[in-house]
């Protein structure tokens, strides 16, 4: 190249090494001075001023195509990062909030000793986003334990499973309904689809333990007495289909997000007179995983209530040891 200044010659010897460091040689075809108008012509760059003869110069088209390509790759990376956020980062954020709620509830239960009189009726201090009960599902392992908070807004559910406001409270007649995340945010109900009929779902309140058992699934009802109903868990705890008006209340169902009737005192039915209702527990989460298309619903019925006063200090119901 005739226009090359003479002082460049020693630098050419440095060129291969320079390129290895990923300096100006990293994107070889970008290094000609026409690439960018504000490209500084400091003496360091002069070595790169000669593009290889078979590499075409960067025109506006080439620059546009490259930038668009880079934007697409960036968009892809951002989406990948969103998945990481949804599945891992929210878990991490929620774990802290869940631990805080549990600590607060333990403090409340510890400081507020229940006297003889109050044992008759459980008292709950229900404030939005505050824990008031604990949930155990022994089938999911001995470490499966969540503090249930009041309310089902996004902020509430970020802390833990949330109680639908206005539905029954643990142990009461009616339908104690709880929503929980299936992916991220601690994912309390990640494995809800793996729960089987007669599996125990245990709720701890300040005064009592309530053992609920999942109702028979739709396809098990027909042959219940001769089939699944004979399994030890079901027979000893007398779990059976509830009958009218609960004929549509089955252990597991998948419904549309609009079907709010699943958390009614009698799902899809008219409640019988007060005092005649069963004490149900309903868990709701999204279905299928990573989708908000449908909801996975699990219904359970109260099987046993154990006042804490009947247990020794620190003793837990035997159901917690079931697998």
């Amino acid at each position: 190249m005739p226009e090359s200044p003479t002082e460049v010659i020693p630098r050419i010897e440095d060129e291969p090494e320079h390129g290895l460091y990923g300096g100006h040689g990293e994107y070889g075809d970008e290094d000609d001075p026409y690439y960018d108008h504000d490209y500084d012509h400091d003496e360091e760059l002069d070595a790169d001023e000669q593009p290889a003869p078979d590499v075409p110069a960067d025109g506006p088209v080439r620059k546009t195509v490259r930038t668009v390509g880079e934007l697409f790759i960036t968009a892809g990376l951002v989406m990948l990062l969103f998945v990481i956020y949804e599945v891992y980062v929210t878990d991490w954020i929620s774990a802290g909030k869940q631990a805080d709620a549990a600590a607060e509830l333990n403090k409340e239960w510890g400081s507020n000793t229940v006297g003889g009189d109050q044992q008759r009726s459980a008292h709950y201090s229900l404030a939005d986003g505050q824990g008031f009960a604990k949930l155990y599902i022994p089938t999911f392992g001995p470490d499966y334990k969540f503090t249930i908070v009041e309310g089902t807004t996004d902020a509430d559910l970020e802390i833990g499973p949330g109680h639908y406001k206005g539905t029954a409270l643990p142990g009461q007649q009616g339908n104690f309904a709880v929503a929980g995340h299936r992916v991220g945010k601690g994912a309390p109900f990640n494995d809800l689809d793996l729960l089987n009929s007669c599996d125990a779902i245990v709720i701890e309140t300040q005064t009592d333990w309530f053992v609920y058992r999942m109702l028979p699934k739709q396809d098990e009802i027909a042959g219940w007495a001769e089939g699944k109903g004979k399994a030890a868990k079901c027979a000893t705890n007398k779990v059976q289909p509830l009958g009218a008006p609960y004929d549509k209340t089955v252990g597991q169902e998948i419904v549309l997000p609009t079907q709010g009737a699943v958390i009614a005192p009698v799902p899809y039915g008219q409640p019988p007179s007060a005092g005649q209702q069963a004490a149900l527990l309903t868990l709701t989460t999204c279905h299928p995983q990573f989708s908000a298309k449908e909801r996975l619903i699990v219904h359970a019925v109260l099987s046993r209530q154990i006042p804490k006063a009947q247990l020794k200090a620190g003793e837990t119901p035997q159901e917690l040891k079931e697998r």
Binding site: F82, Y85, E86, T152, Y164, P257, A292
Partner: peptide, 22 residues
């Protein structure tokens, strides 16, 4: 910026993780 500002803002608007009925 993405993890603590953009994603928490965008998440409720995206149909991935809605768990309540009614």
């Amino acid at each position: 910026l993405l993890m603590f500002v953009v994603f928490p803002w965008a998440e409720p608007k995206l149909p991935f993780n809605h768990v309540t009925t009614g």
